[in-house]
Amino acid sequence: MKRANVAILGAPPRFHSLLAHVLSQNCRARVVAAEQADICIIDLDGHGAGELLAAERRRQPPRPLILLSLREVEGEEGVWLKKPLQSRELAQALERILERQERPAPQRPSAGADLPEPRSPAGDIDPTADEAAFYEPRDYLQNLLVAAYRQALATEMTLRIDLGWEPIVIYPRQRLVWVDADDRKLRAFCRLPLHRVVRLRGEGGPQTVIQPDPEAGLREPPPGAQRMDAFLWKVAWWNAAGRLPRSVAPDRPLQLRQWPNLTRYWHPPQALPIAALLYRRAQTTLAAARVLRLPMAEVAGFVSAASALQLLRFPEVHAAATEPVTEAPRVSERQGLFQRIMKRLRGK
């Protein structure tokens, strides 16, 4: 396994020795001179730390920084760790940086295109690349849908979302949604943030509204109407396009309150092991992707959909408690049998 070359800058000799010992014993790292390092740890309370930090900021290409200090550091690039330092926190910070370095570069959506290309299934996201890693649900259909659901259920009135695209009709009594679009069309539409829908429609177009549709309310929902929960689930997954909601940090532990009703929800095959893992214990999105050896984007899609349906809880657990326990799953007799049953059940 690759070890990182790490420099320790600004630390007094005893602290330097202690850090070097922790890095060699607890981390995938070796301590090297500053000019040979891929990653720098800077003691901001040490002598000349300001100059060292300024020099690192000017450095091209930049390298990842881990900043140590007694007081909180704001606005600095890098990972900040508060003193007194826990060796586990240092190991985790280093591991996160190494993971990012070992991953392929993220694919960013093209700025000029009206319809951003979907993320490659094999592609991954970099938690530091903000635009590519996160999205704001309120900019997309899913939040509008949640607002319309709430209003329809509270008033028990049939409502219609008019975006200048296909109208989306909500039947609260039957808990159904109808839109005259197949999944392929809906999926393409879900890639667009709402402000872009408005721009494509033109300035003179109708405003985005949720309004009562009494005429539709007099009729039964058309054949092909979909369940409200199943519809929101897939819209949120497709709105996410491999990103996490901005409110869910990739290193924030989360857990499923309950399994999503996957017999009734669209999902890619990997949703099953993600559900099993996140239901069993709190994990960060990063850890879940690592344990399951999945692209981060796939786990992010699941987390976004589960978040939209309020299936997640965010326990205040110690970071160590979220560490995966099955990094290298043992292949027992039972696991071999289970694997064969899975293959049989999923076979065509």
Binding site: W266, H267, P269, L277, R334, Q335, Q339, M342, R346
Partner: peptide, 13 residues
């Protein structure tokens, strides 16, 4: 056993 691997296509209800 959440460590089981899985293959196959998307699930369409």
């Amino acid at each position: 056993d959440p460590g089981l691997s899985i293959e196959g296509g998307e699930h369409e209800p």
